[in-house]
Design a protein around this nucleic acid. Structure first.
Length: 138
DNA sequence: GCCAACGTTGGC
DNA sequence: GCCAACGTTGGC
């Protein structure tokens, strides 16, 4: 079991929209960065990921589960290497964990979210996962 | 193969 | 709206 963090601007794809898709889930489209793509390709069915709202909110709002492993991104040109996975909303955090709160927690200062702030799909360690769940009231 | 120019992301 | 970080593109 691996843990991840995926980012989305709520203007283009928000947690609420994700929740409305229910158990069917939705393809996580639009990744156009090779590092992020490699992370998508490492995801296994059943892996969990934090859903982070970038730009507006700047907070982790919920947890999604990988429902289907990587396949070609339907929004990419034919022949492009980009992939998607299906994400299924699992549960919201009771309290969203803000970027500010993450910065203020010394144990989280090595998080990819802080070190590689532009990477939109990134790994999360088991220790980071646990701590953020706790901070989020789960 | 180098590097300047440019575009995009995302925090502030 | 600005700017830093960083990836990509294109001229040489």
């Amino acid at each position: 079991m691996n843990y991840w963090l995926v980012k989305s601007e709520p203007d283009s794809w928000s947690w609420d929209q994700q929740v409305k898709k229910g158990a069917k889930g939705e393809a996580w489209t639009g990744v156009r960065n090779h590092t992020a793509k490699l992370n998508l390709m490492k995801m296994k069915k059943g892996d969990l990921a934090f859903f982070y709202h970038s730009n507006i909110g700047k907070e982790i709002v919920g947890i999604v589960e990988v429902g289907k492993e990587h396949y070609p991104d339907p929004t990419a040109k034919a022949g492009d290497p980009w992939v998607v996975v299906d994400m299924v909303a699992r549960e919201p955090l009771k309290t969203p964990v803000t970027l500010e709160a993450i910065k203020q927690e010394p144990k989280l200062k090595e998080m990819a979210l802080l070190k590689y702030s532009r990477l939109s799909v990134q790994p999360v360690t088991a220790a980071e996962w646990k701590l953020i769940c706790k901070m989020g009231g789960l």
